[in-house]
Design a protein around this nucleic acid. Structure first.
Length: 433
RNA sequence: GGAGGGAUGGCCGAGAGGACGAAGGCGGUUGUCUUGAAAACAACUGUGGCAGCAAUGUCACCGGGGGUUCGAAUCCCUCUCCCUCCGCCA
């Protein structure tokens, strides 16, 4: 959510931002109109309240002085004022509801150095790391490798739960578990993050805090009976960890990391990426969330992104850092970098991490503030988050990039201590070395 | 799932229709005293909205929402959360 006062004073900048974002639906003009009506009604209602407050005090005093007649006359007048207030308040309530709803649907303006383009065609590759693997045979995609190795079972996943579900099995399931633990350990031990085990289901207001609601409910699973929403990323519950709090001086920065399943309906991407485990309804992801002071926002974004990059480098997976263009920016981000890993089998760059700075956009929605100094007025924190990393796509890249001509896979040496030296994944029935 | 009891400022805790933004205590800040510290004493010490350049004024907030009333922390309804006991359960 944006600061309405900033919006009032920066109409032009706001209009330009919406053009850059290629968002024609954002009801920012409506919000400004409603804001004016709101303030007008507020002033009238509060003026009357002031009158009533003094009047009511007088009534109390008159009764104590036993001036019953005078008190009753005044009571009648206050009653009339009360009726007028009630009428104004009713209008005010509906205006305020509309106003809030409009505000919740206005996206975060992009930072000045975000590439300006109407869609993802304008995304800019900022850097690339690692060599693309070369093969003297035709590399297979993971949807062939996985079943051959008996480590991904698509058919039985579909039988149990429908399309876009899968079982990881044996060395596949173990690989994901080991990677997840290792990612967590690196962030905790080397980057100063605190590990969390967060709720996987949240109330609607938590989803509003991160910007998933009201606009993007289509992508969420929900238990209607109990009114729980399933998190599409740990960002939701972890960002809401400090909802409605005022963090005391010295508390910032706060770094958190959690590994959780993520649940996504993927209605918007129907028909895309249907093969394999590129885009599924349930997947594991390690997510980093930061709460920081505004002045450090950009530096924190850089170190956040690097924390994710380090993992790809150690896994020796070729990747590139992409600056997301204005038209492709998410609703809540003011700037975003994607990390895309090369998958040699499907011949694609796959997004394994998305690192965003939200400025105070989420903090306003979730009401997360901090006190810069003892006794100072509370201000909104800046929030950031990034995946490090999304596991299925890392597994895809590991399998596809490290495959051998016979269909087996030799995982990178860095995983040896974590896998007890079992770096080879062999097809069932194949003789071990 | 059943039966009860609760939610008040940073924390503890009073308040039960009018002088209550809220006693008292703790904590915090500042000052006096002191070579310094402690103690003692004193003052200050919540969050937002609106108007204003500002000083300031005003409105709202006692878990959330709605209602009764001239007037609600206080009465009524409802939701959420917490606690106790019983049942069930990893």
């Amino acid at each position: 959510m944006l600061d309405i006062r900033w919006m009032r004073e920066n109409r032009q900048a706001l209009a330009e931002a919406m053009v850059k974002l290629n968002d024609q639906e954002a009801p920012w003009e409506l919000a400004l109109e409603l804001d004016e009506r709101r303030r007008e009604l507020l002033q009238r209602s509060e003026g009357l309240r002031e009158e009533r407050n003094t009047g009511s005090k007088q009534i109390g005093a008159l009764f104590r002085e036993k001036k019953v007649d005078e008190a009753n006359t005044l009571k009648q007048r206050m009653s009339d004022i009360g009726a007028e207030i009630a009428q104004l308040d009713e209008q005010l309530r509906s205006v305020e509801t509309e106003f809030r709803d409009a505000m919740m649907r206005i996206p975060n303006p992009p930072d000045s150095d975000v590439p300006v383009a109407p869609d993802e065609e304008g995304n800019v590759v900022l850097s690339q790391w690692g060599e693309l693997p070369q093969f003297d045979f035709s590399p297979q995609a993971h949807w062939d490798l996985g079943p051959q190795l008996d480590i991904i079972d698509f058919e039985r996943g579909v039988a149990a739960s429908g399309s876009r579900f899968y079982f990881l099995k044996g060395a596949g399931a173990r690989l994901q578990r080991v990677l997840s633990n290792w990612f967590l350990d690196v962030h905790v031990n080397e980057h100063g993050y605190t590990e969390l085990y967060p709720p996987l289901m949240v109330r609607g207001h938590a989803m509003e805090g991160t910007g998933n609601l009201p606009k993007f409910g289509d992508n969420l699973y929900r238990d209607a009976e109990e009114d729980y929403w399933f998190i599409p990323t740990a960002e939701v519950s972890v960002t809401n960890l400090h909802r409605d709090e005022i963090l005391e001086p010295g508390a910032l920065p706060l770094y958190y990391v959690a590994s959780t399943p993520c649940f996504r309906r993927e209605k918007m991407s129907a028909g895309q990426d249907v093969r394999g485990i590129k885009r599924v309804h349930q997947f594991q992801k390690v997510e980093m969330v930061k709460f920081v002071e505004p002045s450090t926002g950009r530096d924190e974004l850089e170190s956040l992104t690097q924390a994710a990059e380090v993992l790809l480098q150690r896994l020796d997976l070729p990747y590139r850092r992409v600056a997301i263009a204005t038209g492709d920016l998410s609703f809540v981000a003011s700037i975003k970098y994607d990390l895309e890993v090369w998958a040699a089998g499907c011949q694609e760059w796959l997004e394994v991490s998305s690192c965003s700075l939200f400025r105070d956009f989420q903090a306003r929605r979730a009401n997360i503030r901090y006190r810069p100094r003892a006794g100072a007025r509370p201000e909104f924190v800046y929030t950031l988050n990034g995946s490090a990393l999304a596991l299925p796509r890392v597994i895809i890249a590991l399998l596809e990039n490290n495959q051998r001509a016979d269909g087996s896979v030799l995982l990178p040496e860095v995983l040896s201590p974590l896998l007890g030296g079992d770096l080879e994944i062999l097809p069932p029935g194949a003789a071990g070395p």
